Computed example of a mutant assay.
Amino acid sequence: MKFKIIPILPLLLSFVFLTSCEKDDPEIDYMATYPVSGDWTVNYYVENDEGELEEVANHTQIIAYNTSANVPTEIWIDDHGSFWDYKVKTSLNMTDLTFSGNELDNEHYESKVTITDGKVIKNGTKVNGMQADSIYFRVSFDDDEEPYGTIYHAAGHRSNGFGD
């Protein structure tokens, strides 16, 4: 009986080559704006005459992401038209995970947007039994007609893909 070594040799050499190579996987770093950056599910509220918050929109999407400079001092906030159709670049403080800006240029159409009291709280809420980061900010629009100057409260959590 003749043993054929030829077909086994390439397989053996491939195995030796693959196991002997050391992988130089670089560490994957988060962007400079993480954990503020990400996909967020938010509800919008307005304050009524009694000072209570009434919901005006629910389960809308906000995306917060780094600018092309990838610095920890500015971030894009973009709702992709899920509530008001705004996209603004606002200042960011990564030390306390806060963001805000007055009369910011809306990149989607000509208008001004003001964001105040923006804050991300790590592990600030539970969503479907899982711990999640939470987000809160106030937003107003210079083209809001009724009543002009309405301040909307946006509150929500990091989207987790589990039916949030």
Rank of each mutant, 00 (worst) to 15 (best):
A57E: 11
A57K: 12
N58R: 02
N58C: 06
H59R: 08
T60P: 01
T60W: 03
I62H: 03
I63L: 12
I63N: 12
A64V: 05
A64R: 00
N66H: 14
N66R: 13
T67K: 03
A69R: 12
N70A: 14
N70M: 09
V71R: 03
P72G: 05
P72L: 05
T73K: 09
E74T: 10
I75V: 10
I75A: 04
W76F: 11
W76E: 07
D78W: 02
D79V: 01
H80G: 07
H80W: 09
H80E: 11
H80P: 00
G81P: 07
F83L: 05
Y86T: 08
K87A: 09
K87H: 06
V88C: 02
K89L: 06
T90K: 00
S91Y: 06
S91I: 08
L92F: 00
M94E: 07
T95V: 13
D96K: 02
D96W: 07
D96A: 08
D96H: 08
L97W: 03
L97V: 09
T98E: 09
T98R: 09
F99C: 02
S100Y: 06
N102W: 10
N102G: 13
E103Q: 15
E103H: 15
L104R: 00
L104M: 08
D105H: 08
E107S: 07
H108S: 14
Y109D: 14
E110K: 12
S111Y: 04
S111E: 07
V113I: 12
V113P: 02
V113C: 01
T114I: 06
T114Y: 03
T114Q: 04
T116C: 05
T116R: 02
K119Q: 15
I121S: 13
K122E: 15
N123M: 12
N123W: 09
N123S: 12
G124S: 07
G124H: 00
T125R: 01
V127D: 04
N128L: 01
N128A: 04
Q131A: 15
Q131G: 10
A132Y: 01
A132C: 06
D133F: 00
D133S: 05
S134A: 09
I135C: 04
I135P: 00
Y136E: 08
V139E: 02
F141C: 11
D143R: 05
E146L: 12
P147N: 12
Y148C: 14
Y148D: 14
Y148K: 15
G149V: 15
G149C: 13
T150A: 07
T150K: 06
T150F: 04
T150H: 07
I151K: 00
